[in-house]
């Protein structure tokens, strides 16, 4: 026993090294999980305050862009109001047929305080948190398209998993032919994502629009993702290789909208019951 203690003491540098590295590895693995680590992230008050300051400087350079997007969105909304003076317009552009669909989605505006596009797993920090009604699992969109999904929240800040994250998959639909596939980023070009699982009998063309499908309980149906920029079909391949150019430039993200699906938990729990029964 004494010799063991002596051995550990003599090699204390190595054992400290081992301990610290294992601890870091544990943190990394834990952070990759759905919920993530609770303390060491940018929703921490001090870190987020400093990030807001830094983003404040960056915002000055994006003001023109933000103004343009806002005025365009305003114009679009006004046009819709004129076109449909009586019918209630839903966010996804369809006219309301069923009164039970009223109030399915709630919208919160939030400001981006920190944003990455160059890592392999990118996260965005926003300035709304638990006290503003934000919960993990809510969808985040911008006027131009899909942004991501809330990963975790502190009292006043939230961390969003961007769709520029190699492990994130979003159910999407080819708007023209209504075929459903999956959007996933390959970790390289922040302008472009891959649209997978479209079988060869479909004929996608460059310029086709890809929107969210609404099959999962997170994103509303019909939110813009982007347009197809290239289509390849290898010989003997089961699916197309489709690249989609994102409609939202993630480097210019400034204001986003957090979407709360009031029916989400209901849909999830119902689907879980079915999955349990089948098993």
């Amino acid at each position: 026993m004494e010799r063991l203690i002596l051995f550990v003491y003599q090699n204390r540098a190595f054992f400290t090294f081992l301990f610290l590295e294992l601890f870091c590895a544990w943190l990394i693995v834990q952070n990759n999980a759905y919920q993530g680590s609770k303390f060491f992230n940018s929703s921490n008050g001090l870190v987020a305050a400093m990030n807001s300051f830094s983003q404040g400087v960056r915002d000055y350079f994006m003001l023109t862009e933000v103004n343009r997007t806002l005025s365009e969105e305003n114009a679009l909304l006004k046009r819709k109001l004129n076109l449909q003076p009586i019918a209630v317009a839903l966010p996804n552009n369809t006219i309301l047929r069923d009164s039970s669909e009223i109030g399915q989605y709630e919208y919160f505006s939030a400001k981006v305080v920190n944003n990455h596009v160059d890592m392999v797993k990118n996260f965005i920090t926003i300035n709304k948190g638990r006290e503003d009604g934000i919960e993990p699992g809510m969808a985040v969109v911008s006027p131009l398209g899909v942004v991501g999904k809330v990963k975790l929240v502190s009292n006043h800040y939230g961390v969003v998993t961007s769709i520029l994250h190699v492990d994130v998959m979003v159910s999407a639909v080819l708007k023209r032919t209504e075929h459903v596939g999956t959007i996933q980023w390959n970790g390289k070009n922040p302008d472009q994502v891959e649209f997978n699982y479209i079988p060869p009998h479909v004929q996608p063309t460059v310029g086709d629009t890809v929107v969210t499908s609404g099959y999962n309980a997170v994103f509303p149906e019909g939110v813009m993702i982007g347009v197809i920029s290239s289509v390849d079909l290898n010989k003997d391949a089961l699916f197309y290789d489709i690249k989609v150019r994102l409609s939202q430039d993630f480097r210019k993200l400034s204001w986003v909208t957090v979407v709360k699906n009031n029916r989400g938990p209901e849909q999830d729990s119902l689907e879980q019951v079915i999955q349990k029964l089948e098993r």
């Binding site: 952070n31 992230n41 890592m119």
Partner: peptide, 23 residues
């Protein structure tokens, strides 16, 4: 490493690399 990680939202990654080179 951990301080940098908090800003990059990459818990443990920078800490891992830093401890390694310090060793």
């Amino acid at each position: 490493g951990l301080s940098v990680d908090m800003f990059y939202d990459s818990v443990g990654l920078h800490a891992f690399a830093c401890v390694l080179i310090m060793y």
